[in-house]
Every structure is written in structure tokens, then in C-alpha cells.
């Protein structure tokens, strides 16, 4: 197994030589994952693009880790030369989610950043225009945030069809029929 990961290990070494603070993990063959800090991201990414062959910006993902009060931005890069996929993971403070835009490196980064801005509320410094992409006149919480309640939104926005009010919950029907009172305990976990 290890012998097959020579290329991956070499990239890890190279990255660490250039950026000591990058936490590089070889996930598996053709996958490396890098934890990095937001501050000098453009320099790091541009190093990967210009010197390490990660030319292809696959996409930029955002994951809301509400319980940590953080957003995680994941920059997916692909090296056509080495056939290796790198995931660059950056954690941002949810209350002050700001990071530098990569739109000067890749034209389509602009689109991804626009979407993340409107869906999560992350601010991209230096972006040419963080205008609406998919949404229109949206004033609510950015909807892809975990604390945006889809059900509540649907209940407010749409009308439920009539004629299904007689639906019953099986478990409750059974417990009512047999006089069983299901206690409510506070879950520890």
C-alpha cells in the first residue's frame, strides 16, 4: 500500500517544505487533504496551482459546522499531471466569515464564491461582484446554513394540500390504544 503512495507522500513533503503550517494528510491513493489557515490562502493555492500542477479547480465547497461555530471551506484541486486530488480545508469563524477571493486565479472561482456568499453568507474579499446567483431578493438567513429551518420556511411559504389531516402516527396509535405512556427522557448524547 505504502509503496503506491510515493507520489502522494512526495507532494506532502514538498508542500510542507514550502508551507510548514500546512497539515497535510494522505487520505488514500490520489487523495490528499490539507488543513490550512485562511490568512495566506491565495498564496498557498497559487503555489499549488503554479508549482505543484494543481491546475484544475474542481469546485469550492462550504460545510457549516454549526456546533463549532465555524464554516469549513473546501477547495478541491486536481492535478492532471499527477492525477491527484487535493482538498484544501479552511475553517472560518461563522460570525465573521471572511476570506480572500480566488477569482483572479480561476474565472469560475467567481461563480462558486458567489454561491457560497449567498447560500452561507461568507464574504470573499476582492471578489468582483458578490451579487445573487440563484436566489432573488433574499433577505432571510442564508439558506444553506444549518440553522435555516427548511420546514418552517416551507410551512410559511407554501400551503399544504387538504385531505391528509387524518394521517396517524403508528407508534402513537399503538401506545394510545394500549394505554401506554411513553416517557420523555433527556438524551445524554
Amino acid at each position: 500500500m505504502d509503496s503506491k503512495l510515493i507520489k502522494e507522500q512526495e507532494i506532502k513533503r514538498n508542500i510542507n517544505n514550502a508551507f510548514r503550517s500546512a497539515e497535510v494528510t494522505v487520505v488514500r491513493r490520489r487523495r490528499i487533504s490539507v488543513r490550512f489557515r485562511a490568512g495566506i490562502l491565495p498564496a498557498f493555492i497559487s503555489y499549488l496551482k503554479e508549482y505543484m500542477g494543481f491546475v484544475h479547480l474542481v469546485m469550492i465547497s462550504c460545510v457549516d459546522w454549526l456546533e463549532d461555530n465555524q464554516f469549513e471551506l473546501v477547495y478541491h484541486l486536481w492535478s492532471y499531471e499527477e492525477h491527484i486530488h487535493a482538498m484544501i480545508k479552511i475553517r472560518l469563524d461563522r460570525d465573521n466569515a471572511q476570506i480572500k477571493s480566488l477569482s483572479s486565479l480561476w474565472p469560475h472561482a467567481e461563480t462558486y464564491e458567489r454561491e457560497i456568499h449567498e447560500m452561507f453568507g461568507v464574504d470573499f474579499e476582492g471578489h468582483p461582484g458578490l451579487t445573487d446567483l440563484i436566489l432573488e431578493d433574499w433577505s432571510d438567513l442564508p439558506p444553506m446554513r444549518r440553522d435555516f429551518d427548511t420546514r418552517a420556511f416551507v410551512a410559511e411559504t407554501f400551503e399544504w394540500r387538504k385531505g391528509r389531516e387524518d394521517a396517524q402516527d403508528v407508534r402513537q396509535t399503538i401506545s394510545a390504544r394500549y394505554g401506554e405512556t411513553i416517557p420523555e427522557f433527556k438524551k445524554d448524547k
Binding site: V55, H56, L57, V58, W106, P107, H108
Partner: peptide, 8 residues
Amino acid sequence: KEKALEWG
């Protein structure tokens, strides 16, 4: 062609 890869 030169920019194809970079443009995704």
C-alpha cells in the same frame, strides 16, 4: 486551448 484546463 492554452487556457482550457485553467478554465475548468
